[in-house]
């Protein structure tokens, strides 16, 4: 089946083709919501912020140049919208408000442990400073390379590395009682 390339879609959307932009939204909305949700911690805020990010992307589409992938440009907008939202709402989600995942495990004990682990990790991530969290989220959930994160956040590569290192260090400290390091045999 023929699929239009992303560059072509962006080009058409820049010329006002709304259907091309709709296709871009379809392709990227899950990733954008995922990243924004990990930054905000609230699914409702995340959906609103993701919609706002796409609206801003539409409004500023003519300023986009293919010097960086469109996805990274979109992430840049999404992260900024999420940070704006966090500043505005000053809202973090309590554990009992976290939405349930659809793929539950059948074993009640395993499910309980899984939920406890998810709760701990969520709390630890949400406890990070927003800018540090943004780097971690783009790496772990956005799947961006260091260079792409630097582009998306418009920060130096060294800053990406230091923030990522800081984020992981704080998570390790936060989760230390539950993280059991294991000796890894090495060939």
């Amino acid at each position: 089946m023929f699929t239009t390339s992303e560059d072509e879609l962006v080009h058409r959307a820049q010329h006002g083709d709304r259907s091309a932009f709709a296709e871009l939204v379809r392709r990227h909305h899950a990733h954008v919501i995922g990243v924004v949700y990990r930054l905000c911690g609230d699914p409702h805020l995340a959906e609103d912020a993701a919609q706002e990010a796409f609206v801003r992307a539409w409004l500023n589409l003519n300023s986009y140049r293919p010097l960086m992938p469109w996805r990274n440009w979109l992430y840049r907008i999404a992260v900024n919208v999420a940070l704006d939202t966090l500043r505005r709402e000053r809202h973090t989600l309590a554990i009992n408000q976290v939405p349930e995942a659809r793929d539950r495990q059948p074993d009640p004990q395993a499910l309980l442990e899984q939920k406890e682990r998810e709760h701990l990790v969520r709390q630890a991530i949400l406890a990070l400073p927003p800018t540090t969290r943004a780097v971690l989220v783009l790496r772990e959930y956005g799947g961006l390379s260091y260079r792409e994160i630097a582009e998306a956040l418009d920060i130096p590569l060294g800053t990406v590395m230091s923030r990522l290192s800081t984020a992981r260090q704080r998570l390790r400290e936060h989760l230390a009682p539950w993280l059991a390091p294991q000796e890894v045999p090495y060939e």
Binding site: P43, D103, R117, V121, L179
Partner: peptide, 19 residues
């Protein structure tokens, strides 16, 4: 190994959220 465990925990959060 500790970093890998942490990474597994981070990436182990459910992705299929009811959005």
């Amino acid at each position: 190994a500790a970093r890998q465990v942490l990474s597994d925990w981070i990436r182990g959060l459910p992705k299929d959220l009811p959005f």
